[in-house]
Design a protein around this nucleic acid. Structure first.
Lengths: 231, 231
DNA sequence: CAAAGCAATTTTGTCGATAAAAACTGCAGA
DNA sequence: TCTGCAGTTTTTATCGACAAAATTGCTTTG
């Protein structure tokens, strides 16, 4: 199911390939919320027949990134602020517990993963644009890796896979409201403190930092300056 | 996505219909863990072409009920004790928080849903067999409805949908190890106490009863008397 | 001018056919 | 008896075609 290694295409079948590409386009904001996904158009765009596409869209539906209506096809899942709040809350619930568990029973391997992840994340530039903000895909990858590393010691694959899925759903909101929070927070420091608390095995502090981290993001994204999303 | 109303087939398309029927057969244990799902065989069994079936199987894969291997098709997801433990833990994490939230902000509508659900659940017979145990589908439906009612007041649709999905995954283990726990627990009382604590707005008590309830089930199902499951 | 009705066009959902890949078979040789 | 291999059979993944449903646009009417 959820990829964990967000490294791109390795799916050999056309269906799997289309799944990854469409997913990427939704997460990256290329395909806008509520946009109609017409099979014929997708056929040309992704160079695949109807069956593999349908298959890909079915999977995306189960992932919560696409909605389907009875006999009127598929659409990109809508994205409103309420949805985002629920997403953040669910992630807090799930990852909060998983983080606590990781801190309690985490092995040396878990520690190493966290150390490496925060190290690499801290060095990567957030933006590749000079003046303005242009998301650096490498930073995005490392950011996800860091958050997954934090909970990787909990020993619960099902929870990890769910967190992976929810992470991706949340990423979409970030790419929809570009640059909004850029340079307004000391994100590097936030992550560093989180990593430190985790490595100190200070569960309560780590969990509350995680909550604050997620909720701060949600509040920023929900700010009134547009990019609101489709009905 | 997740159905919430577990009421059976209303999907109009063959793909949706096949999805529900296959899902039902996996949850009910008709299709055994790790069993190969050959398209041709499924075609005859469910009376649908290859494309709708593939579509259904893709969705089930995303639901965690089916696994797929690169060019060698689909299988029913394996089911081992470790998996069950993770499932139970994840449900505790998610539903524990959702229950706490429901108790905190639950409206009269939520209360009513819980009251009705526990009332109906208490009246339904658990088994329809005379001497031996034969699962009563009606009881199963009401049981799910009760647990969903408990968390229905949390105001978080995403969490509710996930809990729905995880519930179904857990149900599978119950039907795989038939009757094991039948008559060995006072399940009616467990549910009643849980409902009472929730309606009393005693969050801590309700949550710990929920944890105990789930963990007891897992321990029973993991007992050594067989039904173990495929590798 | 607005609303309702009808016809043409898209679009969806489905099927059967087909190439490519995997699994299976029996057989020869060590 | 076991092992490796060539040919056969099964199975997967994909395509293009087609009927049914939905959408669109045009026309007619009150």
């Amino acid at each position: 199911m959820a990829d964990t290694e967000s490294g791109s295409a390795q799916g050999t079948s056309l269906a799997q390939l289309a799944y990854q590409r469409i997913r990427g386009d939704i997460l990256g904001g290329e395909l806008k919320p509520h946009e109609k996904l017409k099979i014929h158009a997708l056929r040309q765009r992704y160079g695949a027949g109807a069956s593999p596409l349908r298959e890909a869209l079915s999977q995306l539906t189960a992932d919560g990134l696409v909605t389907r209506a009875d006999k009127r096809g598929f659409r990109v899942a809508p994205a409103d602020d309420g949805d985002l709040d629920e997403l953040v809350q669910t992630r807090c619930w799930l990852e909060g517990n998983a983080l606590r568990e990781s801190i309690t029973r985490g092995t040396a391997k878990w520690e190493h993963a966290v150390v490496i992840a925060i190290y690499e994340l801290a060095r990567a530039p957030r933006s590749i644009g000079e003046g303005e903000f242009r998301a650096n895909p490498e930073w995005e990858r490392l950011h996800k890796r860091f958050h997954m590393a934090l909970i990787s010691g909990c020993g619960n694959r099902i929870a990890i896979d769910l967190a992976d899925q929810l992470y991706d759903r949340a990423v979409r909101y970030r790419s929809l409201s570009i640059a909004r929070s850029f340079a307004r927070r000391d994100v590097v420091k936030e992550h560093q403190e989180l990593a430190d608390a985790a490595l100190d095995r200070n569960a309560e502090k780590a969990v509350s930092l995680l909550y604050a981290h997620y909720q701060r993001t949600a509040r920023l994204l929900a700010e009134p300056n547009g990019a609101g999303a489709a009905k």
